[in-house]
Write a protein that binds this DNA or RNA. Structure first.
Lengths: 151, 151
DNA sequence: GGCAATTTAATTGCGCACAACTTAATTGTG
DNA sequence: CACAATTAAGTTGTGCGCAATTAAATTGCC
C-alpha cells in the first residue's frame, strides 16, 4: 500500500462524487424551467414510466427511504404534479400517482436526455458502456455493504 | 429520440447518482470510526497531502464553495483536527492547517483505500480506467456548463 | 381469535450542497 | 491618493440523504 493511495485525485470515490455533482449542475438550468429539482426529476421519471407506484416501490427504484421521499412527494403534491393516497387494500401503503399536469410535464422534458448527451461530449456507445460499469459497480458495492453489515 | 430516453435505468446521471451514494455507504462505517463524515474525509485527504491550504484552495480542489466548507471546517475545528486563521499577508484569506491530532488521524485511515478496493470487486486496472473516464467526463461537463452559462 | 412480529410511512435531527446575499480586505485605475 | 471593482469568507435559506424513532396497519403463529 503506497502513500499515494490516500491522495484525493487517486480516489475513485472522489471521481464519482465530482462527476455526479457536475452532471447535476448541467441538469439544473434545464430542470429549473420545469420547476423540478434533480431528485424530483428522478421521481418523475419513475412516474412517467409506471403511472403510479407506492412510496416503497419508488424507494426501491431510487434506493431512497421514506425520510427522503415523504417530504419530496409533499413538495410535488404542493406543485400539483402528483397525488398520494393510502391504498384501500393495505392502509400502510401510500400510492403516488401523476396528475394531468404531472403527465403533461413529460413533453417538456423529452429533449433533456439529448442535451445531456451532447454535454458529455462522449459517443453514445461509450456512455452506455460507462453507465453499465457504474451499474455493475453499484451492485458490487451494495453486495459488499450488505455482507459487511450482516443484513 | 426514443421514448426509452426518459427511462430511469437508461440515465447516465442516475447510474452516477446511485454509484456515488453507494460508495459513500461503504465508506460510512469506516469513517465513523474516525469520527469523520465523507466530505470531511475528502477535506482531510487534501490536508494530509498539502499540510495547510486556504479555504479557496480547498474549494478549488474539491469544487465546493465557502457555503459548504465554512461550516464543515468549523466542525473539524471543534473536533480538534484543524486550525484556521486569517493570513497576515492577506486578511481576506483563511489558512486551514492540521493539528497534531489531525495529522495523527492519517495513520488510522491508511487501510481504507484497500478495503474500498476490495468492496468494488474490480481489478486495479479497471478501477483506474473507470476513475479516468469519470475525471474526463467531469471535465467535459464542466466545459459544457461554463459555455452554456457564459462565464 | 388474540397478540407478537413485521411492514410501511412519517417525523426528527444533522450535515451537506448550492444559490443568493453580506461583509471586509485588497487591487487597480485615474 | 481616492475610490470603484474585485476577491475571499461567512451567513441565510432551501432541499436533499440518511440514521433513528414513532405510529399505525397487517401478517403470522399459537
Amino acid at each position: 500500500m503506497s502513500d499515494s493511495d490516500l491522495h484525493l485525485e487517486n480516489q475513485l470515490c472522489f471521481a464519482l462524487y465530482r462527476a455526479s455533482r457536475m452532471i447535476q449542475q448541467v441538469y439544473r438550468p434545464m430542470l429549473e424551467e420545469l420547476g423540478l429539482t434533480y431528485p424530483q426529476y428522478l421521481v418523475m421519471l419513475v412516474l412517467w414510466e409506471r403511472g403510479s407506484v407506492t412510496l416503497k416501490e419508488l424507494g426501491a427504484a431510487l434506493e431512497l427511504d421514506s425520510g427522503t421521499l415523504s417530504p419530496l412527494i409533499k413538495r410535488l403534491k404542493a406543485a400539483g404534479l402528483v397525488t398520494s393516497a393510502r391504498r384501500v387494500t393495505d392502509e400502510r401503503s401510500v400510492e403516488i400517482a401523476l396528475t394531468p399536469e404531472g403527465r403533461a410535464l413529460r413533453e417538456r422534458a423529452t429533449d433533456i436526455p439529448h442535451k445531456i448527451g451532447c454535454a458529455t461530449q462522449m459517443q453514445v456507445d461509450d456512455i452506455i458502456s460507462l453507465r453499465s460499469m457504474l451499474t455493475d459497480l453499484a451492485a458490487s458495492l451494495a453486495d459488499s455493504h450488505t455482507k459487511a453489515t450482516k443484513d
